[in-house]
């Protein structure tokens, strides 16, 4: 189950961030879930408390934000957002399209003290 791996990775990264910031309390966490990140949000939310146990992240409210695919068409220089994971230009139907964002699962924001 890769959502459990993701939860442990997220906790590890956040521990590092807390250390760097000299903070030891977390009030809220915002995750950004790319349309092409392959994250099952329900499964992640199920796993997170297991990974967070005994850390400052235990019991902290989580917000999951969907991040759409942000695409750029090299043929017609059109930048656009696609809510579906379909990598075709919505203007010229071109296929020479670059993914600018929407592939990652990120810790977007943390409120710490």
């Amino acid at each position: 189950m890769h959502e459990l791996s993701l939860a442990y990775s997220a906790i590890g990264e956040m521990q590092t961030i807390l250390k760097k910031e000299g903070a030891n309390k977390v009030n809220r966490i915002v995750f950004s879930v790319g349309a092409l990140s392959g994250v099952d949000q329900e499964a992640f939310l199920f796993c997170f408390p297991l990974a967070a146990e005994g850390t400052p992240m235990e019991g902290v409210p989580l917000t999951m934000e969907d991040a759409c695919l942000n695409l750029y068409c090299n043929s017609c220089n059109y930048e656009f957002i696609n809510p579906e994971p379909i990598v075709i230009c919505s203007k010229c139907q071109g296929v020479d399209v670059k993914v600018l964002s929407g592939q990652d699962f990120r810790i977007k924001e943390m409120e710490v003290e």
Binding site: L6, S9, A10, G12, E13, I17, E21, G22, A23, K25, N27, F31, S32, D104, F105, R106, I107, K108, E109, M110, E111, V112, E113
Partner: peptide, 24 residues
């Protein structure tokens, strides 16, 4: 510097955009 235990800590919001799989 900064972290005085007798001072109330001030919550701050970190704008991170940090990849969950950064280490991998």
């Amino acid at each position: 510097s900064d972290n005085h235990s007798h001072q109330p800590s001030v919550p701050k919001t970190l704008q991170l955009e940090h990849k969950v799989l950064a280490r991998n």
